[in-house]
Computed example of a mutant assay.
Amino acid sequence: MITSRQIRAARALLGWSQQQLADKAIVSLNAVARLEGGVVDSRISTVQAVQDALVKAGIEFLDADQKGEGVRLKSPKA
């Protein structure tokens, strides 16, 4: 499951506002704000919709391991 910090970092990499992410994920602005604030929505479908929108835009989520969690922007394919 992605974390609130990963969502904020991914959005920053893309240069998106919370409203843009909400529009792309087809969720409410309030849901994005709550997720980024660490208040996990009880509906997994909301988190999944946000994650799917970010992955579609080129974000890759890095699992927490010895180096820690993270995100990166995939290089565009040549």
Rank of each mutant, 00 (worst) to 15 (best):
V32E: 03
D23F: 07
V71G: 05
G15L: 06
S4D: 11
D23P: 00
Q51K: 13
A22N: 03
Q66N: 14
E36C: 03
A10M: 07
R34N: 04
G58R: 02
L35P: 00
S45Q: 13
V39D: 13
W16N: 00
A12C: 06
G70Y: 14
L29I: 14
Q66R: 15
T3C: 13
I44H: 11
W16E: 01
G70V: 14
G15Y: 06
Q48Y: 08
L14E: 01
V71W: 07
Q66W: 14
R72S: 04
R43G: 01
A49C: 08
G68A: 15
A49H: 09
S28I: 13
W16L: 00
S4R: 11
G70I: 09
F61K: 03
S28R: 13
L35S: 02
V55T: 09
V71I: 11
I7F: 00
V55N: 00
T3F: 13
A64V: 15
Q20G: 04
R43H: 10
L54H: 05
L14S: 00
R43K: 12
A9S: 10
S42Y: 03
D65H: 15
R43D: 05
A25F: 10
R43W: 04
R34D: 01
D52E: 11
L21H: 04
F61E: 01
A12I: 06
S17E: 11
V47K: 05
S75F: 08
A64T: 15
A78N: 09
A33Y: 13
D52R: 12
D52W: 10
V32C: 07
L29C: 14
S42C: 02
N30G: 15
K77S: 06
A33M: 14
F61T: 02
K77V: 09
R34C: 03
V32P: 04
Q51C: 10
L21S: 03
I44Y: 14
I7M: 03
G58V: 04
A25N: 06
S45G: 09
Q18M: 12
Q19V: 13
R34H: 04
R5W: 13
L13Q: 04
V27P: 00
K77C: 02
Q19K: 14
W16Y: 04
M1A: 12
V55P: 00
D23Y: 07
A33N: 13
I26C: 10
G15V: 08
